[in-house]
Design a protein around this nucleic acid. Structure first.
Length: 425
RNA sequence: GGAGAGGUGGCUGAGCGGUCGAAAGCGACGGUUUGCUAAACCGUUGAGGGGCGAGAAGCUCCUCCGAGGGUUCGAAUCCCUCCCUCUCCGCCA
């Protein structure tokens, strides 16, 4: 959420920011109108409340009688008027809040301009693509042949875009999860969490999925709970409505969770294989930091995601997203993409974002400066560390052998009980 | 799911429908004292919002005692609904 004070005082910069991300800057003017209307109503109501409070005290000290009855009657009228003003103010406020919650974050000054994917900047490419003396095959052929990936039965159980990992395929994914968590905890300084996979709507408003992207979410209507589309939701809401001490910052969390997405908006995209399912596993990293450190922390976050790829021996590249490609809540983002030799694509396995105070405002996450003073909003960051199915794809496709078996990357072997090769199940 | 108890400021914990944004204690912060610590004493110490204002100064007003409604001139205090916590019972991985 943007700062209403900035909208009031210097809206032009924000409009320019919205233009950069391809959003209509007119919303700012609409917000200003509603805000002015709201303030007017509040001012009127408060004036009358002050009067009522004063007179109520007078009434308390009065003798019974006509004069007192008179004053009470007058205050009853004032009360009715206040009721009307409050109701109108609440209405306007609701519109204002809803509008505010639908305005995306403003890009950080360093973000490359542009709206299209081509405008992203590839900042580095690391690792060698594997060499093959045969034509490497995509995972949607390798997996079923090895008996570690079952599309038909996934569809039978839950419909399209669901699949079942079997045997060593399942084990590979589980090993990746454990190994990544251990890496982030032992080497990168994160605290591991196991949060709920279903959360209240407030959480999703906090991170930015609601109200704008509700169509992409699964929801339990009975209890009004939502399946998380990413662990960013529970992890970023851990400290919602809290005031942290400055000494407690930065706080770094990581968690493994499944993620649930209806993918209504990306129907038809990435349909082959397990690139884009309605449910996928992910290890996520989330940081709460002091505002002046968030850009620096973003670089470290990206480095943590890269480290996963490096240690797995997967060639990857880092792209700095242009203004128009960043997600709703981000002010500065980098994607990490691994090369998958079979489908011959760069697959996004991580998206690391500095959200600035955008989520902190929504979720009311603050810290108290060490020198005292008023609580201030923290900055939040999140990044995949990393997404599982696409990492599984890259491992299968890049480590495949001519005979259709798959070599297990060395980093994972101890986690997989010493297994060196995935063969037919 | 059933029965009971309860939700008040960073914490503990008082609070007759008006003088309560809220006693008291603890903690924290500042100061006095002190060779250093400790103790003692004094003081300060919630959040959000509106208006005036160049102003994270100052002044002023409004709101907030789990959430939302209601009664009333006036609600932390009365009524209703919901949520949560604790204890007991039931059920269960």
């Amino acid at each position: 959420m943007l700062d209403i004070n900035v909208i009031r005082e210097s809206p032009d910069g924000l409009k320019e920011g919205l233009r950069k991300v391809g959003e209509d800057p007119a919303v700012i003017d609409r917000v200003r109108e509603l805000d002015a209307e709201w303030r007017e109503l509040v001012a009127q109501a408060e004036e009358m409340k002050a009067e009522r409070n004063r007179q109520s005290k007078v009434i308390g000290g009065m003798e019974q009688g006509a004069e007192r009855d008179d004053l009470i009657a007058r205050m009853r009228e004032v009360g009715d008027k206040i009721g009307g003003l409050d109701a109108r103010a609440a209405e306007v406020r609701e519109q204002l809040d809803d509008l505010m919650l639908r305005i995306p974050n403003i890009p950080h000054e360093h973000v490359p301009p542009g709206l299209e994917e081509e405008d992203d900047v590839v900042v580095r490419t690391q690792g060698e693509r594997p060499a093959f003396d045969f034509k490497p095959r995509p995972h949607w052929e390798l997996g079923p042949e090895l008996g570690i990936l079952d599309f038909e039965r996934g569809v039978k159980l839950s419909g399209s875009r669901f699949y079942v990992l079997m045997g060593d395929g399942s084990r590979l994914q589980r090993a990746l999860i454990n190994w990544m968590l251990d890496l982030h905890v032992a080497e990168h300084g994160y605290v591991e969490a196991s949060p709920p996979f279903i959360v209240g709507g407030r959480c999703l408003v906090g991170t930015g999925e609601l109200p704008k992207f509700r169509d992409n979410l699964y929801r339990d209507v009975e209890d009004d709970l939502w399946l998380i589309p990413t662990a960013e939701a529970p992890l970023t809401n851990l400290h919602r409505d809290e005031v942290l001490a400055e000494e407690e910052l930065p706080r770094h969390y990581c968690a493994y969770t499944p993620c649930f997405r209806r993918e209504k908006m990306s129907a038809g995209k990435d349909v082959r294989g397990i690139k884009r399912g309605h449910q996928f596993d992910k290890v996520e990293m989330v940081k709460y930091v002091r505002p002046d450190t968030s850009e620096e922390e973003l670089q470290k976050l990206v480095a943590n995601a890269e480290d996963v790829c490096k240690r797995l021996g997967l060639p990857y590249r880092v792209r700095e997203l242009c203004c128009g490609q960043m997600s709703f809540q981000a002010s500065h983002s980098y994607d990490v993409e691994v090369w998958a030799a079979g489908c011959e694509e760069w697959l996004e396995v991580s998206s690391c974002s500095n959200c600035g105070d955008f989520q902190a405002r929504r979720a009311n996450i603050r810290y108290r400066p060490a020198d005292g003073g008023r609580p201030r909003f923290v900055h939040t960051l999140n990044g995949s560390g990393v997404a599982l199915p696409r990492t599984v794809i890259a491992v299968l496709e890049n480590y495949q052998q001519a005979d259709g078996t798959v070599i297990v990357p060395e980093a994972l072997r101890s986690t997989m009980g010493g297994l060196e090769r995935i063969g037919p199940q």
